[in-house]
Simulated scan of single mutants.
Amino acid sequence: MAQILDSLPPEQSGKILCCYVNATSKIQVARISNIPNWYFERVVFPGQRLAFEAPREAQLEIHTGMMASAILSDRIPCDRLAISEPSSDDLDTSSDYVDDPSNKKQIVQSISPKTGDTTKPLTIASLASVD
């Protein structure tokens, strides 16, 4: 999902959809500071994926959290983080479907039901006090 909380200034054109993943075990702060009249700063937790819209010339600064401080650990041009959005051709759901016999691979194995009694007695663990 694209970030829409802080919309770009109206004079900005050529925005791109970007994605950054925090592949570290530390909390990071992602910040764009080179675009005038626009504030973008987000906390990115370990393993979290951050999707956002930004001008093509924006640079994402990554500040890695330390005890009571943060260190600028990377500066990434947003055009390197760009992800492609599906075009209308990719989402075409017209009825021009061709039945392709090579596309009939079984994706999910069928589930065969078990026969016979599958019930088992319930064993309850109990605690006893020891003096």
Rank of each mutant, 00 (worst) to 15 (best):
M1A: 14
S7A: 13
S7E: 15
L8I: 06
L8H: 00
L8D: 01
L8C: 03
L8E: 02
P9A: 08
Q12W: 03
Q12C: 13
Q12P: 07
G14T: 05
G14D: 04
G14P: 02
K15I: 01
L17P: 00
C19A: 15
C19M: 14
Y20F: 15
N22R: 07
N22W: 06
N22L: 07
N22T: 10
S25G: 15
S25K: 15
I27P: 05
Q28K: 12
Q28P: 02
V29H: 10
V29N: 09
A30E: 06
A30N: 05
A30M: 09
R31L: 11
R31M: 10
R31E: 09
R31P: 04
I32L: 08
S33Q: 07
N34G: 04
I35N: 04
I35M: 02
P36G: 02
P36R: 06
P36I: 00
N37P: 04
W38M: 02
E41I: 10
R42I: 07
P46G: 06
G47K: 05
G47L: 01
R49Y: 09
R49K: 15
L50A: 00
F52V: 03
E53T: 07
E53D: 10
A54H: 01
P55W: 05
R56V: 01
E57Q: 03
E57P: 00
E57R: 01
A58L: 07
A58W: 01
A58P: 06
A58Y: 01
Q59P: 00
L60A: 02
E61Y: 03
I62M: 13
H63G: 10
H63W: 15
T64N: 08
M66T: 10
M66Q: 14
M67R: 13
A68Y: 12
A70V: 11
I71D: 11
I71L: 09
I76W: 01
I76P: 01
I76F: 08
I76G: 04
D79T: 06
R80I: 05
R80G: 05
L81I: 01
A82Y: 00
I83A: 05
E85G: 00
E85M: 12
E85R: 12
P86S: 08
P86A: 05
P86N: 05
S87W: 03
S88G: 03
S88A: 11
S88W: 05
S88E: 14
D89L: 13
D89R: 13
D92E: 09
T93D: 10
T93Q: 13
T93Y: 09
T93N: 13
D96G: 04
D96K: 08
V98D: 07
V98N: 08
D100L: 06
P101K: 07
S102A: 11
S102N: 14
N103Q: 14
N103I: 02
N103A: 13
K104C: 08
K104I: 04
K105S: 14
S110I: 04
S110H: 08
I111C: 02
T115R: 12
T115A: 14
G116L: 10
D117H: 04
T123H: 06
A125L: 15
A125S: 12
L127S: 09
D131N: 11
